[in-house]
Design a protein around this nucleic acid. Sequence first.
RNA 1: GGGGAAGUGUCGGAAUGGGCAGACGAGCAUGACUUAGGAUCAUGUGCCGCGAGGCGUGCGGGUUCAAGUCCCGCCUUCCCCA
Length: 1043
Amino acid sequence: MITPYRPQEIEPKWQKRWEADALYRSVIDTDKPKFYALTMLPYPSGDLHIGHWYAMTPSDARARFKRMQGYNVLFPMGFDAFGLPAENAAIQRGIHPGTWTLRNVANMRQQMHTMGTMFDWQREAVSCLPGYYRWTEWFFLKLYEMGLAYRKKSPVDYCPSCKTTLAREQVVGEEHICERCGAQVIKKDLEQWFFRITKYADELLDFSKIDWPDKIRLLQTNWIGRSEGAEVTFSIAAEDLPADAAEGEGELVVFTTRPDTLWGATFMVLAPEHPLVERITKAESREAVASYKQQAARQNEIERLATDKEKTGVFTGAYAINPVNGARIPVWIADYVMMTYGTGAIMAVPAHDERDFAFAVKFGLPIIPVIARPDGLAKSFTFPGSVREGFRTELETAGIEFVATPVGDMGEGLFVTLRGDTQIEIYIALMQKFLLPNNWNEVVGARWAFIFTDGEKSEVCELNSVETDAAILARCKAIFPPVTPNRTCMEMLSSLPFYTDVLFHHEYGTMINSGPFSGTPGDVAKSQVIAWLAEQGRGKAAVNYKLRDWLISRQRYWGAPIPMIYCDSCGIVPVRYEDLPVLLPADAEIPKTGENALLYHKGFLHTTCPKCGGPARRETDTMDTFMCSSWYQYAYLSPYYREGDSVTGNDTPWDPAELAYWAPVDSYTGGAEHAVMHLMYTRFFTKALRDAGLLNFDEPMLQYRYQGIILGEPRDGDCVEVSGSWEGNAFQAHHIAVTPFDQRQNWPSIGKSESRVCGEVMDRDDVSLKVQAGDELVVVHVPEGLEIIIPGKESLGGLNDILYHLEVEKMSKSKKNVVAPDTLVATYGADTVRAYLMFGWRWDQGGPWDSKGIEGVVRWVNRVWALVMDAPRNRVPLDAATERELQRAMHTAIKAVTQDLESFSFNTIIARLMEFTNALGKAKDAAWESPVWDTAISHLLLLLAPITPHLAEELWEAIGKPYSVHMQTWPSWDEAMLAVDEIEIPVQVNGKVRGKIVVAANADEATVKAAALAEVNVRRYTEGQQVLKVIVAGRKLVSVVVR
RNA sequence: GGGGAAGUGUCGGAAUGGGCAGACGAGCAUGACUUAGGAUCAUGUGCCGCGAGGCGUGCGGGUUCAAGUCCCGCCUUCCCCA
C-alpha cells in the first residue's frame, strides 16, 4: 500500500508537538558550549515575504545543524517595530500606528510558525513596546552621560515628504532621494541630536576580531573613508582683515592629503557659507559675493559637487599667505567647496587636482606644476614654419615620435611626443638649433620649458613660478598677439587639445619647484613635508574621515522618545533614569500632514524640570529606528528586562547571567544592504557599551554572512484584442478583450488593422497600454471607465487588472509579481519551500524566482518519502559491492553536507543529498531492510533534519526511532569509508584526454604510469613518438608528453 | 571618474593548495507503464561533424606537461562611492 506524502497534515502536527514540548527553548546550560545564531529581524510591514523565508530558513538550517553538533543554540526572533510605514498607515487608514504594528506582528508571527524554524519564541522582543524602548532610552542617557550624544545645529538632510531628517546613509543615489519615499531630500538647518560614532572611526576600521565578508568590510572601510594628510594653517593677509579682527581670526586651517603639493597652492577657495567670507570680502567684490552666495544656496550638494559641471566662483578681493613660501594667493569662494566637509576651506593646487585645474583655467589663476610626472611623458607642438629645414630629419634620426599634420593653411605642424629625460634634452637642444627667430616652442608635461630665440642665441625659460609664468606669457604675446587674451601660460596651452593629457596629473612624484624640497622623491615627499611642517609649527599630521556623526533625531511620532527635557532656567536636562520610560502617548493624533504628533500633544510636551522642578518642555524628536536594532541582539537575552521596575543608571539592561553565557553573537546573517547602516551602528554601539562597562567584548557579531535577494519572475504580458480607431500614431480603444498570458494557445491572431489591434501588453500606465502587435509597439489609449472583458472574471475588469510583460525586477504588489510564501506552503509544504530556497540559488547572490524549478525539489522530497515508506517491488539479493557502495555514498554525503552547512553553501547541500537519495534508490531493491539500509536511511534523516525538519521527524518516527530527530547527534563520517577499491584515472597525451585507466586505489606511481602507457588509445597517440615526460598527478590524472 | 563583485549549456548553478569542465536540478527529446497524463519510471541532452575527430568557461595574449582557476591587456553587467 502506497502512503502518500501529505505535508499539509504532518507539518502543523509536528509544529504543535515541538511547541508543546518546548523543544526549542534555549536555556543556559554550562555543560554545553553555547552558540548564538541570529538572523536579522523583520520590519512588521504586514505579510511575510518570500525574502524573509529566503533569509531565515537557511539560517535556521544552520542553527539546527549546530544544535545537533552538540551546541546549546540560541536562535531568537523579534520585530523592528518602530518606523515610518506605521505612521503612513495611520494617516491613510486612520488607525493608531501601534495597533497597525502589533496586528502585523501577530500576523507575521503566525506566518513564521509555518516555516518550521527553531526560534525560541519566549525570547521574542518587539522594539515598539515600552519594556523594550525603555532601555533604548536608557542607552541614550548612557551615551549622553559619556559625552557620546550631543545636540548641534547643523545643515541636515531633510525629507520634505516624510517631514523628518535622515541620516546621511538614508539618502541614496545621485539624485539625493529619500530611501523610504523617493522624494528629493533637501538641506535644512536644525538643532539635532547626534551620536559621536566618529570617535570610534579607527576602531571600526579594525576587522581583525571578526569573520565578516570582504565586501562588507570594504564597504564600511570606504564609508569611514580615512585619509591621512596634514592640517596646514593659511593666514589671511593682515591688510585684508577688518580692523576689529580678533587674534587668530584670519587663520584658516586646511586639511590636505597632499601636503607635498603645498608649493603649488596658488589660490584658496572657501565655501560660500564660510563665516570668514563676510569679514574679508573687499568693498568692490561685495555685490558679486553676495549674489553668488544666494545662487549657491539654491543648489543641492550633488549639483555643487559634480565634477563635470562648469566651474563657478567669485574672488573676494582678499589674499592669504601660503605658509610654506609666503606667497600672496587670492582667496575665492566657490560652490564646489562645502562647509560641511572638512573645514570649509581648501588650498587649491591646480596643477595636481582636477577640479582646481578646471577652476584655475576658467578664471585665469596661475597653475604651477610642483610634482614631476612619474611617466616621463612630455609633448611639444612645433608650429608650421617655426623651424629650419632639416628639423624633421633630425627628429627621425633621434628616434623621436611625431605626427606631421597640416594646420589650417599654414603648412604642416609637428605633434611631438617625448618619452623620458634623454629625449626631452635632445629635443630641446635640437629646437635651440633649429628654431627660427620671432618664434617660440614649448615642451610640456614631464618638463615645462619655453624656448625662445633671437636668431643668434636661444634661451630656455622654465615655467616654475608665478613670476616666470607671467614673464613667459608676456614674451609669447609679443611674438604672437592672438594669444593676448590668455591670463596664464597654462590657459594658453590648454587651448591645444593635443596637450590635454599632459597638463595635469595627480600622481605622486618627485617634488619640483618647491624651494628646499625640490628633488624630494615621491615616496617620501608627503612624510618629509609633514615632518617639516610640524617642526616649523606651520601645520601638523592629521587624519580626516568621511564618516560623519550619526544623526539620530527624527521628527516623527512613531519612535523611541529622546529622553531629554528643555528647561528655561536649567537648559537641557536629561530625564532621570528612574523616570524611564518616557512613554509615547497612546492618544496622540497623527496629523494628516505627517507632522510629529508629539508637537501637539500637550500632556507629552509639558513636564517639569527634573533639576529645578519648574515648568519644562520635552524633546519631541524620536530616535532613528537603527538605534533600536543596534542592541536587539542583547534584548533577546532577557526580553523586556525588569519591566515595571524602576531602574537606575547603575543597573544593567539585561540579565547578567544570560549575557555572560550567550553573548556575543556567534553567527549572524542578513541582507548586505545594511552594510553601512545597521552593521556599523551595532558595532559602534557595542564598543560604546563596552566603554560604559556594560559589555566585556569588542564586537557584537563574530561571524556574519549575507544572503541575496529573490527577484520577481520574468513573465509574459496578457494578450489584448482591442477594437477602435486610429488617431495619428495612437489607437483609441472602444472595446478590449483580454486573454491571460498563461493561455498562449488561446491567444487571437496578433497584428493590427484599421479597426483592430491585438498583441501582448508590454507596459501600461493609468490611461494607456503598450501593445506588441507583431513587430510594432502600439500605444493604445483607453478612455476612463471602459469595460474590459477578462474571461473567468465575474465583473468587468479595469485597466489595472491587465498584466503586462515583466522583466526580472524586484517584487512589488503593483507589478503583481510577488511570490506569497503562504500559497507555496499550502501547495507544496514548508519543507519543500525551505529546500527549494536553499537549492535554487547561490545564497549570497539570489536571483529571479523560478516557479518551475521547485518541481524538481517536489519530486525529490517525494522520492525521499517513498524511499522510506514504500517497499521495493522487485527484491534482489544484496551483494557486497552494493553494500559497500551504499556505505560509501552515505559517508560521502555526511562529509559534504557537514562541510557545506559549515560554509553556508546551501545549494550544494541539497545537491549532495539528492545524490545520496539517488544512490539509495539504486540500492533499494537489494538492500531494503538490511542493516546497511537501515543505517543509511537513518543517517539520511539526520542529514535532512536541519533542512526539512518536519519530513525528517515524520520519517524518523516511521522507522521506529525515538522522538525527536532534532535531539539526535549529528553523524560523523569515516574517511576510510570514502575510499574506493579501484579508481579510474584519465590519461592525457600532450594535454588532451586520450584514454582512461582503471587501477587499484592504492597502486603505486610506477604501476599507474605503466598502465597509462599501456592503454590502447594512449598508445595510438604515443606510437612512433618520443615520450619526453610522464607526470602522475596524485591519483587524479596522468599526463604524457610526447614529441 | 574611483573602488568592488560577477561573466561557465536553453535556464538555476557545480567544479579554484591548476589536474576528466558542466555535479545536482529545471527545460527539452525518446521510450515504458497507463483509459488518460502537466503523474511515475528509464534513457539521452555543451557546440560542430556521418565519422575519426575538432572546438568549447566574456574577448585577446602569456606562464605550464596541464588554466574556468595563475599573470598581463580589453569588453560587458551589477553594486558602492563621487
